[in-house]
Structure formats: structure tokens, C-alpha cells
């Protein structure tokens, strides 16, 4: 299996720590609804770094990469369908 050097691992940790600082910093700035999306965007970036460099997902090949993305897609479907219900309750006058 592919080896990841200590240097790469430390660099990734550095970026993760910077992103943690960034997400704490922006939480003090009122951006309205954008705050939530920014926090989730930074979290997703951090998650991608962990998956790519700590979990070596690319070395596993297409099967694992695609099935992982499939899992995320189904999670998105679960969220979307739930909100199709919850977000519009009481809006339709039946």
C-alpha cells in the first residue's frame, strides 16, 4: 500500500488546525444564514482532507470512492426529502 510521508501528514494537520481556527473566527461575525453554510463548507473541506490523506481513500480504488460518495448522496436524499415535508407544513391550505 502507498505510504504517506510524515511531512505530508504534518502539513495536512497544519491545514486542519488553520481551518479549525478559521471556523471559530467566522462564527463571531454575523453573516446571517450564510454562517451555517460557511461552517458546513469548512467542515466538509476538513472532512475531505481527512478522507484523502489520513484514510487514504484514493488508494482503495473506484469501488470505495464511488460507494462512499453514494453514501453521501443517500444522506443528501434523506435530508432533502425530510425538508420537502417539514419545510412546507402548513403552507398548503388543504
Amino acid at each position: 500500500m502507498h505510504r504517506v510521508s510524515y511531512g505530508t501528514l504534518s502539513a495536512v494537520l497544519g491545514v486542519l488546525l488553520v481551518l479549525t481556527g478559521l471556523t471559530v473566527a467566522v462564527s463571531y461575525v454575523d453573516l446571517g444564514a450564510f454562517n451555517v453554510w460557511l461552517a458546513l463548507g469548512i467542515a466538509s473541506t476538513k472532512a475531505s482532507l481527512v478522507l484523502l490523506f489520513f484514510m487514504h481513500i484514493r488508494d482503495e480504488g473506484r469501488l470505495v470512492v464511488l460507494s462512499f460518495l453514494g453514501t453521501v448522496l443517500f444522506l443528501a436524499i434523506m435530508i432533502a426529502f425530510t425538508f420537502c415535508d417539514v419545510a412546507f407544513r402548513g403552507h398548503i391550505g388543504i
Binding site: 500500500m1 471556523t23 467542515a43 489520513f54
Partner: peptide
């Protein structure tokens, strides 16, 4: 070791989302 590591990283991944959702809601 790799599989134990994968589990540990996933637990870290969940915390990456839990942290802003609970501690950083403006």
C-alpha cells in the same frame, strides 16, 4: 491497524461536524 485507524478517523470526521453545529451556532 488500518481498519482500527479508519474507524478512529471516522469518529474524528463526525466531531468535525458536531463542533460547529453545537458550539459555533451564532
Amino acid at each position: 491497524l488500518e481498519n482500527a485507524g479508519l474507524y478512529w478517523h471516522l469518529v474524528d470526521l463526525f466531531w468535525i461536524f458536531i463542533f460547529p453545529l453545537f458550539y459555533l451556532v451564532l
